[in-house]
Design a binder for these strands. Structure first.
Lengths: 275, 275
DNA sequence: GGACGCCCGG
DNA sequence: CCGGGCGTCC
């Protein structure tokens, strides 16, 4: 089976790109970030016509995540409030089965996480906060968010051996993931962010892309400004992180640079995992 | 020779449409309205590559007119300040040879008129104010503008027998020019506007389109709202008005509806006069 | 540089 | 509905 992740930078602006890409790449599951639209305005039909079941959690202007799946997902939930199932038409259940702290429900105001079970795999689709500048309020929010994510995963791992986390992490873990040397004060590469992400991986996740490719020079995001893409000035910040069982099953993990060459592209390009 | 007029509703948004259309329709002269861009940002090269000389008078956001000509125009002037020549690079002369009233120079703040001589013909390209609502301040401005236009033409006619006025007049003179019955309080069809325009035609101009086609149901503008175009709910508000000599020379005057069927079109479609 | 919302203008 | 400008975010 194939799973893709793609920060589309507005589903409404990228509808054509995404349908074209899915026709060429009929993956079983695709995880999207930065859909930037409230659920009632999400363009469902073009993707339902491609035989996908849609699970979406969006807001106006910012953030927004979605999972499309060729088969229905089980136990779909949004945010970090544990076991909060939604139907494919996005009703959110009235009851929350755990005592969500204020912190968690505050974090869930931004639509950055959606999860569902595909066969025996829990797929968790994330749009990690960007963090703006090191030391800023948004940076603290990013670190807080990663801490809550870690707690969420600790709980999930107790019952679920096969977890696939993917999405836009807004963090490049190593120097080989960035086209140039960076300082410790740079967002997406600062030690604190990296440590927060590493603490999550230390729960038992491995980077699927690095199972197959140790080389530098492979990126998933290029800044729109300063002609980043033509000169391959990129960052690898979109990831698949897999629990051990799943990592063993992984057959390939590739970055498809093609959509970034199209007219009016997203600044990110898709990553595809084959299991 | 062929002259076209087209309200493009932003030259930057319509650049592709216009170059495509000019390749199919290599008219000698094209008069554009609502270019909506300051002269320094006007996309000159795509049109210069099609062998046109460009004469432009634009402003930020609103209005803006331009003439493209296969041969250089003589005595190009912008606005109503009489004999105010500009070069093809749009320098405006420092001297105004007539005592421009404050009224005229105020009206010229909005870039709605540009003129030039092609062979023996004075071509006057106009974007008449819309007028918003009957009785409004903008309506009074429209009537004022038409009055000044009339005065301008009275002077011009003394020395220039061959005048071709064209552009977006934002007035449909007769009921056969509108897809439905209108009330006297409707903008673009109110008696006062029509009288102001008729007073101009009474100086000795005739409607080139009506020389060839007396039928109702021929329009040049369809509102973006309420799916006006698919149901042909249009208005004929873009016109060629010719002095007698020129009217006698006119071979055809047609409305090309095709560009209005293209993706993301202007709400207006071009009219082509053959002399 | 390119999304968005909001406002203005047609 | 579809242009433009502006402010905001990434």
């Amino acid at each position: 089976m194939k799973i893709a992740t793609w920060n589309v930078n507005s589903i409404r602006s990228r509808q054509e790109h995404l349908t074209n890409w899915l026709q060429k790449n009929p993956v079983d599951v695709i995880c999207l970030q930065e859909t930037k639209v409230i659920d009632s305005d999400f363009p469902r039909s073009p993707f339902e016509e491609l035989a996908y079941h849609l699970y979406i959690s969006g807001q106006k202007s910012y953030n927004g995540v979605a999972i499309f799946s060729k088969i229905p997902l089980q136990n779909v939930s949004v945010g970090f409030a544990h076991r909060n199932p939604v139907s494919s038409s996005n009703r959110v259940s009235q009851v929350s089965e755990v005592s969500s702290s204020n912190r968690v429900s505050e974090l869930d105001e931004q639509k950055r996480a959606i999860a569902g079970i595909f066969e025996d795999i829990l797929i968790l689709n994330l749009y990690v906060p960007n963090g703006s500048e090191v030391g800023s309020e948004k940076y603290e929010y990013k670190l807080q968010w990663l801490k809550v994510l870690r707690e969420y995963l600790e709980v999930a791992l107790k019952t679920t051996p096969n977890i696939c986390i993917c999405g836009d992490f807004n963090i490049a873990l190593e120097s080989r993931d960035i086209y140039r040397q960076t300082k410790d004060t740079e967002i997406m590469a600062s030690p604190q962010e990296r440590q927060s992400l590493q603490a999550i991986l230390d729960l038992g996740f491995t980077d699927a892309f690095r199972k197959f490719n140790p080389d530098a020079g492979h990126y998933t995001w290029w800044d729109y400004r300063r002609g980043g893409f033509p000169q391959n000035r990129g960052w690898r910040i979109d990831h698949f992180y897999l629990t051990e069982n799943l990592s063993d099953r992984a057959q390939s993990c590739i970055i498809d640079k093609e959509p970034r060459t199209w007219e009016k592209p997203s600044d990110h390009t898709p990553v595809i995992l084959e299991l």
